[in-house]
Write a protein that binds this DNA or RNA. Structure first.
Lengths: 137, 137
DNA sequence: TTATTCGTGCAACTAAGTTGCATCATCCTA
DNA sequence: TAGGATGATGCAACTTAGTTGCACGAATAA
């Protein structure tokens, strides 16, 4: 397990308590997190800072943005193969009907989408609804 | 082409000017429409009426809800095979990067998603980003 | 024609996402 | 190491989307 500050150093990101708390919250929770949820969880920091650091982290390739099955904007930690502005975010997401959390599913489960002739498809987001590993039993 | 009031009559839906204007706006435009857009287009009607009729139409199986590639809630006319609370909404949607409109794609282009063993997938929404028929040239 | 149900309009509100600006911290360089 | 430049934060305010309560008016059925 890599230390949070190490990641920051490696990418030349200034290490602040807000940023550390933000990343730790992500590593603690194995699902995607919405801004309002982060706002509540990190009350000691201003909403704006949290909000702006989310955007910043996304630019840096540390987190990626996604919309869950209810259209709610969430952020999730990127696996180590995400470069700046080059998210390998071609995995699907699952929103659990029971616990309402949204999880990243393994890339191998994600089908390739063929582009119909009439249009051009540049990227695809697949969002599933169902039951997560914890709730399915 | 079926008359709007005929559809209403067939389903036992009371025909009002707000509802007629709403459905005509959908038939005139071949893409999915957001509530704010409808609000502007149907200024002669109150936002609340438009909003509530959208929900009502969805319950009746006339329109279906979708989130576009930017997480924006939109509504689109159902093909005739949608029954109340039983949308056959298993086609994918394409948000055009140029004109920003969202179109329903034909069902045959939509892949079947296999459920990973660890989780249960009940439904899937596929949203593509790219260029629509009009903008691709 | 009257009671009931349904649809509309108005107002107000919550929640999400966003921006401007002043302040404070950090870094770099002379 | 002083001082300027840049970066991060906190506060306030605001826009937009989505939603609810309530009273009034229209349509329907007995």
């Amino acid at each position: 397990m890599i230390n949070t500050t190490e990641i920051f150093e490696k990418q030349g990101i200034r290490s602040t308590t807000c940023r550390i708390d933000l990343v730790s919250y992500f590593t603690k929770n194995k699902f995607a997190i919405s801004f309002p949820q982060l706002e509540k969880a990190l009350k000691k920091h201003d909403r704006t800072s949290v909000y702006r650091n989310l955007i910043f982290f996304e630019e840096q390739g540390l987190v990626h943005k996604l919309y869950d099955a209810d259209g709610i904007l969430k952020y999730a930690l990127c696996k180590d193969n995400c470069a700046e502005h080059l998210h390998h975010d071609n995995h699907m997401h699952l929103t659990c009907n029971k616990c309402k959390h949204t999880y990243c599913l393994n890339e191998k489960h994600t089908p390739k989408i063929k582009s119909p002739k009439k249009v051009v498809i540049e990227s695809v987001a697949i969002t599933a609804r169902g039951l997560c590993e914890n709730c399915k039993n």
